[in-house]
Amino acid sequence: MTARTPFPPRRLARPLALALLVVGFSALLLGRAQAGGGHYYPPVADPVVREECGSCHLAFAPSMLPARSWQKMMGELQNHFGDDASVEPATARRIADYLVANAGDSAAGRPYAGKLLRGVPPEAAPQRISELPKWRKEHREVPDWEWRHKEVRTRANCLACHTAAERGYYDD
């Protein structure tokens, strides 16, 4: 009887190896996620800001730009990257207050901005997140044809590649 049945450890060897592989792979993934731990930018929580800033494009996380950038942008809504995005004065104030309070260099936003604002001169008020030195560095390996792809088309279309961007996650 015992001679015909294979030795139990041998029968278990394959599932055990598989399980180890899965655990190892998960640990690797987890390690990667932790390594890129600065890739969470809390999404806009204010419903008015989400509606007004999120109709035409993703409502970009306020921690991705410094307060001075948001202030400049909110003062130029009539020419917002070539479009008229002006809103009622009271709405504009509410949006500006929210963006400034959660900006990447404000108390609430700084913990999330990580290294994204590194290399931005203190007197500069960058308007495009995609022109931040750190952003460019992170995206340097994305080939030109991918940017021109019909599902991407613009560097403002984070969602095309970062499918969880609306929830604040920008891992690869």
Binding site: G54, C56, H57, L58, V152, R153, T154, A156
Partner: peptide, 8 residues
Amino acid sequence: PGRTPAGK
């Protein structure tokens, strides 16, 4: 659905 130039 439609889609804006910015992909929304």
